[in-house]
Simulated assay, not measured.
Amino acid sequence: MTHHYLRNNLVNFVVRFIQIIIVFPMAVLLSFYIEPYQSMNYELHFLLCLMAAAAVSVLVTKYSRKLIVLMFVGLLGMFAFNSTFKAQTFEGVYDDYNAMLVNMTSNPHKVSYFKPVRGTYFQNQRVKSAMQATHPKVRDFAVENSTRYFHDEYYRKFGKMTRYFSLFKHIRMNWRYVNDPLGMDYYSPPTESMQLLAGDCDDYAILMASSVMAIGGEARVVISPNHMYTEVKLGHVDDLDKVSYAVRTLFPDEVAGGKIHFHETGEDLWINFDYTADYPGGPFLEPEMYSVISFER
Rank of each mutant, 00 (worst) to 15 (best):
63 Y>C: 00
144 E>Q: 15
261 H>W: 12
68 I>M: 02
82 N>T: 05
41 N>L: 06
244 S>F: 07
279 Y>K: 00
290 Y>W: 09
23 V>A: 06
208 M>W: 10
153 E>N: 13
160 K>T: 07
49 C>F: 15
215 I>P: 08
87 A>G: 08
119 G>P: 09
206 I>K: 09
126 R>H: 02
123 Q>N: 06
116 P>R: 01
69 V>D: 00
181 P>A: 01
44 L>R: 13
43 E>K: 12
85 F>H: 07
40 M>I: 09
141 F>L: 06
278 D>E: 06
23 V>D: 03
179 N>L: 11
245 Y>R: 12
54 A>R: 01
84 T>D: 13
295 F>V: 02
263 H>W: 13
241 D>P: 02
5 Y>S: 05
6 L>P: 01
217 G>W: 10
88 Q>M: 15
34 I>G: 04
89 T>M: 01
72 F>S: 00
188 S>M: 15
134 T>A: 11
24 F>Q: 00
166 S>V: 08
157 K>P: 00
128 K>M: 09
68 I>F: 06
182 L>G: 14
71 M>E: 07
4 H>C: 09
296 E>Y: 13
146 S>T: 02
166 S>R: 03
154 Y>P: 07
147 T>R: 12
59 L>P: 11
60 V>L: 14
8 N>W: 12
216 G>Q: 06
19 Q>Y: 11
83 S>W: 14
131 M>A: 12
256 A>T: 03
61 T>M: 13
276 T>I: 10
246 A>C: 06
35 E>S: 11
217 G>R: 04
125 Q>T: 12
76 L>F: 10
206 I>N: 04
37 Y>S: 07
294 S>W: 10
110 K>V: 10
91 E>W: 12
46 F>G: 08
134 T>C: 10
7 R>M: 04
77 G>P: 04
258 G>F: 14
290 Y>D: 05
209 A>T: 04
253 D>I: 12
22 I>E: 05
265 T>H: 12
280 P>Y: 08
10 L>T: 14
146 S>L: 05
155 Y>H: 14
78 M>S: 11
167 L>T: 02
104 M>W: 15
76 L>V: 14
77 G>H: 03
206 I>S: 03
151 H>T: 09
252 P>V: 00
97 Y>W: 14
136 P>A: 00
70 L>C: 01
281 G>S: 01
60 V>Q: 05
180 D>Y: 11
273 F>N: 04
113 Y>H: 15
140 D>F: 14
170 H>E: 11
195 Q>P: 06
191 T>P: 00
284 F>V: 00
121 Y>W: 14
77 G>D: 04
117 V>W: 09
162 T>E: 02
15 V>D: 05
22 I>D: 01
238 D>C: 13
148 R>W: 13
170 H>M: 08
197 L>T: 04
170 H>F: 15
85 F>Q: 09
258 G>K: 08
157 K>Y: 09
103 N>S: 06
20 I>G: 01
24 F>G: 02
176 R>Y: 06
12 N>P: 07
163 R>I: 00
15 V>Y: 01
63 Y>T: 04
73 V>P: 01
140 D>A: 12
154 Y>I: 06
89 T>I: 05
58 V>I: 13
102 V>Q: 13
70 L>P: 02
222 V>L: 03
214 A>N: 03
190 P>N: 00
165 F>Q: 06
158 F>Q: 05
195 Q>K: 15
94 Y>V: 08
221 V>D: 07
